[in-house]
C-alpha cells in the first residue's frame, strides 16, 4: 500500500510538524516513509509545504506531481495546488480560512473542515495542523490514531510534551469529521 499526501499552508500553521507527525506514526507502524519539505525564503510567514509518502515497500519518489490527497490550510494553497489533486483523489480543506465557492472540481472529493474553529474550541488555534492530521488519518487509514498518539512523543520536543493531551483531542476531533 502506498499513501501520498501534500500539505500546504503558511508558515506558522504547523505544516511541517503535521508532516513529521504522520511520518513518525508510519515509522512506528514499521512502514517506510519520506518527508520532503519545501518552504519560501522567508523565515516566518511565508509558504510552507511538505510531501509525505508512506509505503509498505519502496517509497519511490519523495516528490509527487498529482498527490492522491492534498491538505490545504489557507486560501493561497488551494488556489495554487487545488488543481494538482489526482483525479479521484481527496482535498481536505481548512474551511475556516478557505473559500471553496470558486473551486469546482467534479473529479475529486472535497472535504471542508472548519479547522480553526475546532482548534479554538479546544483551546488553541495553533492546533489546526492536528485537526488536519486527524481527518487525513481517518479518511485514508494511512496511519492509525494510536500510532499518531505515540508519534506525538517523537515529533514534539520534550518541553512541549505537556501539550500532548490537547493535541490528541484535536487529532480526534479532526477524525470525527470524517463520516465512519
Amino acid at each position: 500500500m502506498r499513501h501520498d499526501v501534500f500539505i500546504a499552508g503558511f508558515g506558522g500553521q504547523g505544516v511541517l510538524l503535521a508532516g513529521n507527525l504522520l511520518s513518525y506514526a508510519a515509522i512506528i507502524e514499521g512502514k517506510n516513509v519520506s518527508f520532503f519539505p519545501a518552504y519560501g525564503v522567508e523565515k516566518r510567514g511565508g509558504a510552507a509545504m511538505c510531501t509525505v509518502v508512506i509505503a509498505d515497500g519502496n517509497v519511490g519518489s519523495p516528490v509527487v506531481g498529482a498527490p492522491s490527497v492534498v491538505i490545504v490550510l489557507n486560501q493561497t494553497s488551494l488556489d495554487k495546488y487545488g488543481s494538482k489533486v489526482k483525479p479521484g483523489g481527496v482535498c481536505i480543506v481548512n474551511s475556516s480560512l478557505v473559500d471553496t465557492a470558486h473551486f469546482s472540481r467534479g473529479d475529486i472529493e472535497v472535504i471542508p473542515i472548519a479547522m480553526n474553529e475546532i482548534a479554538m474550541s479546544l483551546g488553541d488555534a495553533r492546533m489546526v495542523n492536528m485537526v488536519a492530521v486527524g481527518a487525513y488519518a481517518a479518511k485514508t487509514g494511512a496511519v492509525t490514531l494510536a500510532s499518531l498518539a505515540e508519534a506525538l512523543k517523537e515529533a514534539l520536543p520534550e518541553r512541549n510534551h505537556r501539550f500532548i493531551p490537547a493535541n490528541l483531542m484535536a487529532i480526534e476531533a479532526g477524525a470525527e469529521k470524517i463520516p465512519g
Partner: peptide
C-alpha cells in the same frame, strides 16, 4: 536539497 533535506527512516 532533496536527499539533504528529506527525512526518511
Amino acid at each position: 536539497s532533496v536527499v539533504g533535506q528529506m527525512k526518511e527512516a
